[in-house]
Simulated assay, not measured.
Amino acid sequence: MNPIRVPKLNNNDVRYVLVEWLAAEGGHVRPGDPVAVLETSKATEEISADGDGILHRIRAAGDECEVGEVIGRLFASDGEHHRHVAVGLAGPSEQSDPAASGPGEVVVTERARALARERGISWERLAGLGKRVVRAVDVARLSADSAVGPRAPSTPVAGPDHAGDPRTPVGPSPQEAVARVVAESHRTIPTAFTVMRMSVGRSVVHARTASRSARALIGLPDLFIQAIARLRTEFPAFYTAPDGVADQRADAVHVGVTVDVGTGLFVPVVRDADRLDLGEIATVLTDHRLTAMRRGFRASQLTGSSITLTLHNEPNVVLAQPIVLPGTACALSLPAVRRECALTAAGGVQEVEVVDVGIAYDHRVINGRDAILFLDALRRAIESPA
């Protein structure tokens, strides 16, 4: 009898929602078969079976499950499964199959409820979809079909047991996950911060030229991602995953990049960024922005970063201090480009384009002198992009 446990999908949450079972109760499951869909505060992820056997479901769709919790079991044979069910060995904590719930009961996932509240969609409209499990994509489709824009709802979306109760919370939002990560970072990581000014005029021109060659819209973030990824060999400590006093050196550079298109803050990962050209990096970032608009990230897209780049390129943003994500050693911030006057070597005055790039770093892993050397190497790469 093999247990099916809830895996650790990210550093933001300690519990997830069991959205739906993909394998039938009593069905034969093989190693690697997808068995269930879990939803974190920001993404959904399929989990697969580690072994072979007959599935017995313990937790029901819509349940909140903690990391490591057993949500199902695999039995060696139909007979063993039937005996287990017949004699009630599951114990009082094991819940019945969701199919046994009464008709009309609708499970609305946390992300779906948060989006419904944001779009002003009532519980009655969600229930009217006729779905056993309502997911965020269903709410987004309903909102688009009825041309409902963001507004405050008159009735909270809490479920049939709480409809009409204004005190009932809708459930955790992506912002609550952000709050947990920020609190964890401040609590556990002794952070230092350094800033260096960089001239980006040549990089701006280079990005335009590269856009025409790659037939993709390439901008400064793409150049910074590429430059950051290529510094790993020279500065391996900046790409570590701190684990107490021991550090594990990254074998590839996966750059986490902040994306916020009005649906919440996400940090999807550009994987193997040190092996991608500018056009490929631009394509990945574009895909991430489109996925953020649909709030359709999978957990695997939001985990595994070895370094982070936070984008603060709204006009007039001069400086930003990023959060060092738990499990990483540092994070860089890229603010908006601004124009200023500078002296030339001949004593004249010229207009230049600059950014003040910041790096927040775990002082247990990185020292201030190393942070300065890293920023200076990044500056040289950005100021001479060709």
Rank of each mutant, 00 (worst) to 15 (best):
T328D: 03
S48H: 15
H56V: 14
S211F: 00
C341A: 15
E46N: 02
L231E: 02
T310H: 01
R295A: 13
R230D: 11
H162F: 12
V259E: 08
T188Y: 06
T233D: 15
L285H: 05
G347C: 06
S154L: 06
F374H: 00
R215F: 05
A331E: 04
V85Y: 04
K8V: 05
V357N: 08
T240G: 08
G72R: 05
R208I: 08
A179L: 12
V259F: 06
L373C: 12
L89Q: 14
R232N: 09
L55V: 00
A282S: 11
F238D: 03
D97E: 13
A386N: 12
N2P: 11
G201R: 12
N11M: 13
A127L: 13
V352G: 03
P190W: 07
P174Y: 00
F235N: 12
N12G: 05
V170R: 01
L231H: 01
R132N: 07
A345E: 14
N12C: 08
V318S: 15
Q321I: 10
L74G: 05
T209Q: 12
V195E: 01
D165P: 06
P169A: 08
A76N: 12
L142I: 03
R379Q: 10
V29Q: 05
E353W: 10
R83K: 14
C341T: 15
I47G: 10
S300P: 02
S213M: 10
A86T: 14
A177M: 03
V29A: 08
V106W: 07
R117Y: 03
G32T: 09
R249A: 13
T40R: 01
V157R: 04
V355H: 04
L309C: 07
G32V: 08
L319A: 08
E280L: 07
A90E: 15
P153C: 01
T328I: 04
